[in-house]
Amino acid sequence: MSTIYDVGRRAGVSRSTVSRVLNGKNDVDPKTAAAVWQAVRELNYHPNASARALVRQKTDMIGVMLAHVSDPFYEKIIKGIESVAAARNMGVVFYNSDDDLQNHKLLIASVLESNKVDGVIVVGSYLGDKKTILEIINRGFPIAMIERYFTDSKVPCIVTDNRQGAVLAVEHLIRLGHRRIGCITGNLLYQTAIERLEGYKATLGNHQFAIEEELIAIGGFHYEKGYEGMKQLLSLNQRPTAVFACNDMMAFGAILAINEFGLSVPRDIAVVGYDDITFAAMFYPQLTTVRQPLFEMGSLAAQSLIDRIELGEDADIIKKILPVELVVRKSCGAVVDNADKDWNETRTVVHL
Rank of each mutant, 00 (worst) to 15 (best):
R291P: 04
W343E: 08
L106I: 13
F279G: 10
I277F: 06
Y284E: 14
K319C: 06
R291M: 11
T132R: 08
A257C: 07
T151N: 15
G186V: 00
V7E: 01
L287K: 05
D275T: 09
N96Y: 07
K319F: 06
D152F: 08
V18H: 02
N23F: 13
K25A: 15
A202I: 08
G199C: 07
Q292S: 04
G229T: 10
I258H: 00
A67Y: 07
A33R: 05
A109S: 12
K231M: 11
Y149L: 10
V122E: 04
A210H: 10
V13Y: 05
I133T: 08
V324P: 01
I269R: 00
I158S: 09
A245D: 03
M61K: 09
M250K: 02
L173E: 01
I181E: 05
V28C: 08
L294A: 11
G63M: 02
D129Y: 10
S153N: 13
M65N: 01
S153F: 12
I184C: 02
K58I: 11
G220L: 05
P266L: 01
N103C: 10
K131N: 13
I158P: 07
D275C: 06
D129T: 14
R329G: 01
V335A: 14
I269A: 00
Y126R: 01
V328N: 02
R267W: 08
K154R: 15
D268G: 09
R9K: 13
D29A: 08
L263Q: 03
E113Q: 13
G205A: 11
L236Q: 04
V64E: 02
